[in-house]
Design a binder for these strands. Structure first.
Length: 484
RNA sequence: GGCGCAUUCGUCUAGUGGUUAGGACGCUGGCCUCUCACGCCGGUAACAGGGAUUCGAAUUCCCUAUGCGCUACCA
C-alpha cells in the first residue's frame, strides 16, 4: 500500500509556523516512505475566506521546499483539491448517512440552539439535545418532508450512538477512548449546503485514499466523530497521528500576540530556509538527541512518527538564531552574496561591488548570526566611520602612543605590500623595534580606521580597505578627533 | 463546568525497569588572541507531588496538582 498524506489548510491568510511544521512532518513522512504528498484547500467556511490566501500559502510552502504531488496548483487524479469545488459530493454523502440512519435533519434556528444551550448551562452539558429539539428524529416523516418542501433551513447532524465506547489508535499517543454520550451530534452539513470540516475531511480523506492523517493536536477531541463517520460509511479508518502544539514562551498556543507566527515573518527576519526547517523539524521530534543540525535529506531519512513527542514545544527564538548562525557559517560567499544583495539593493545600501561584498562577508561570517545584521556591523567597510569609540580607545592608549603612532603612520606609508600577512609581520617588527606591545598599536588603530573596538582581524580589514583609504582615515582621525 | 491530551535542566530534547539521568540553546569560568567573534575545555541546572507494583523505578499502574486543547451551522 502506498502512503498518501495530506496537508489541508484553510485559506484564512498566511502560513502559520505550526502549519508549516504539520506540513513538514507530513512531507517527511511521505518522502521517507516513498509516498505521496497532497495539498487540499479546506474552504468550506465561506465567511472566513481571505483573498489571495491560497497563493500565499503555496508560496510559503514552496519557499520551505515542501513540494506536493497533487494539489489545486498542479492537479492530480483525485481532484478537485479545493473543497468548495467538491460541493455536490458532500450533500450526496450526507444523504447517504440519513438513509442509513447515521444522521438526521435538524430544523432548529440559531436562536433555538442558543436557548437550549442557555438552559443546559447549569448541567455543564452543552451538547445538542436531540430528544428535545426540532429534528427528523422527533418529527414524523410527513412533517419532516413538509419542513423541507416549505423551504425551512435545515442542517444534517450525525446521530452519535450514546452507549458505544469509541476507541481509536493514535500513532503518537496510543489508544484513545471516549464514551459516546460525551460526543456531540455534530452538524455535518450546514444550512448553506456546505459541509463542516468533520464531514468534508472524512469524505475527502477517503476519496483521496489518504492512509495517514497527520494533523495538530487540536483535532484529537473530534477524532472520535471522524472514526464514527468512517464506520458509518463502511470505510477503512486511516491511521492517525496528532502532533503536539507549538507554544509561546508562557506555554500558551503559539499566537500573534507574543511574536511572529507567520512563516513569511521569519523569511523577512533573515532566517535561512534550511535553518528554519531544521529548527522547526526538531521542535517535537528528535531522532537521537545528540545532534542539532540535519540536512533536509537526513530529516527525510531519519523521520518517524513514533518518536514524535507528546507534549507541546516552546518556540525558542534564541535557539533558532543559533541554528541560523550554524548554517550561515557553512554557506559559501557566493550563496551569501546572492542572499543579501537583493536586500541591500532594496534598502538602497551601497555595497561597492559584489566582489568586495563577498570579501567582507568572508571576514564577518563567523561574527554574525543573521545576514541581515551584516551591513550594520560592517558599515565602516563601505563608508568612512562617523563615530569613534573613544572610551575603548583610551583603554589602550599609553603615554608613548602619542609619540609612536605618528611614527607608525609614516611607517605604514612606506609599506608597499598591503596584503594582511606582510602587513602584520612588518608591524610586529616595528613594535619590537619600538619595544611596544602590538596590541597597543593595533587596538587604537582599529578605532581610528573603523570607529569601532570590535571587528575582524585588523590587517585583513586594512587589506580590504586598501592602503590609501586606511592612511586617509588615520590622518583624518589624527587631525580632527580630540582625545581629551 | 464537561471531556480529552500532556508533565525530564529556564528552553529544545535523549532515555522505554538497574545510567554518576546524556546532548544542545541560554547563562557562566577559562584557554586561544590585535579587538569582537568563532573554536576548544569546564561549570550551572531537571525526572510536578503522593501512593502502588518490583529486589530495584524518569521509565508500569492509580490518585492529586498544574498546563494545554476541545466543547460552533470555524477549521
Amino acid at each position: 500500500m502506498i502512503v498518501r498524506v495530506r496537508f489541508a489548510p484553510s485559506p484564512t491568510g498566511y502560513l502559520h509556523v505550526g502549519g508549516l511544521r504539520t506540513a513538514l512532518y507530513n512531507y517527511l513522512f511521505a518522502r521517507h516512505h516513498g509516498g505521496k504528498m497532497i495539498l487540499r484547500i479546506e474552504d468550506t467556511d465561506r465567511t472566513r475566506l481571505v483573498e489571495g490566501a491560497q497563493e500565499n500559502l503555496i508560496k510559503s510552502l514552496e519557499w520551505a521546499g515542501i513540494n506536493f504531488d497533487e494539489g489545486p496548483h498542479i492537479g492530480g487524479d483525485f481532484g478537485p483539491y479545493i473543497q468548495s469545488e467538491r460541493f455536490d459530493l458532500y450533500k450526496k454523502y450526507g444523504m447517504e448517512l440519513i438513509e442509513s440512519g447515521h444522521a438526521y435533519y435538524a430544523f432548529d434556528t440559531p436562536e433555538e440552539i442558543d436557548a437550549m444551550r442557555e438552559k443546559q448551562k447549569s448541567t455543564g452539558d452543552f451538547k445538542y439535545q436531540r430528544d428535545l429539539m426540532k429534528n427528523s428524529l422527533n418529527l414524523t416523516t410527513e412533517e419532516t418532508k413538509k419542513q423541507i418542501e416549505e423551504g425551512h433551513p435545515y442542517v444534517i447532524r450525525m446521530k452519535v450512538p450514546h452507549e458505544q465506547e469509541i476507541v481509536f489508535q493514535d500513532i503518537i499517543r496510543g489508544e484513545v477512548k471516549v464514551i459516546g454520550k460525551e460526543v456531540d451530534d455534530q452538524v455535518l452539513l450546514k444550512s448553506d449546503g456546505f459541509p463542516t470540516y468533520h464531514l468534508a475531511n472524512v469524505v475527502d480523506d477517503h476519496l483521496m485514499q489518504i492512509t495517514h492523517v497527520i494533523r495538530g493536536e487540536e483535532w484529537l477531541p473530534s477524532t472520535p466523530k471522524h472514526t464514527l463517520l468512517y464506520r458509518a460509511f463502511g470505510w477503512d479508518v486511516p491511521e492517525f497521528a496528532h502532533l503536539p502544539l507549538l507554544l509561546n514562551k508562557d506555554k500558551s498556543k503559539l499566537s500573534k500576540r507574543q511574536g511572529d507566527v507567520a512563516v513569511e515573518d521569519y523569511v523577512a527576519k533573515g532566517f535561512f530556509k534550511d535553518a528554519f526547517i531544521n529548527f522547526i523539524a526538531l521542535l517535537g521530534w528528535n531522532p537521537t538527541g545528540d545532534r542539532e543540525i540535519y540536512s533536509f535529506d537526513e530529516l527525510i531519512e531519519f523521520f518517524n512518527l513514533e518518536k514524535v513527542n507528546k507534549a507541546g514545544a516552546v518556540f525558542d527564538l534564541e535557539k533558532l538564531t543559533w541554528v541560523n548562525a550554524q548554517y550561515l557559517r557553512t554557506k559559501s560567499m557566493d550563496e551569501l552574496a546572492d542572499y543579501i544583495i537583493p536586500y541591500l539593493e532594496s534598502q538602497n545600501q551601497n555595497y561597492i561591488n559584489r566582489d568586495f561584498l563577498k570579501q567582507v562577508i568572508d571576514l564577518f561570517k563567523e561574527r554574525i548570526e543573521n545576514m541581515l545584521d551584516l551591513y550594520e556591523t560592517t558599515n565602516y567597510m563601505f563608508a568612512k566611520p562617523t563615530e569613534f569609540d573613544l572610551e575603548a580607545l583610551k583603554k589602550n592608549w599609553k603615554e608613548e602612543t602619542t609619540e609612536i603612532m605618528p611614527k607608525y603612520l609614516e611607517f605604514l606609508k612606506t609599506q608597499s605590500d598591503w596584503t594582511h600577512s606582510p602587513l602584520y609581520e612588518a608591524t610586529k617588527i616595528f613594535c619590537e623595534e619600538q619595544n611596544f606591545k602590538i596590541k597597543f598599536i593595533v587596538n587604537p588603530l582599529r578605532i581610528m580606521i573603523t570607529g569601532s573596538s570590535k571587528g575582524a582581524g585588523m590587517f585583513e580589514t586594512m587589506e580590504l580597505l586598501g592602503k590609501k583609504e586606511c592612511i586617509d582615515r588615520i590622518e583624518y582621525f589624527w587631525a580632527n578627533i580630540s582625545l581629551k
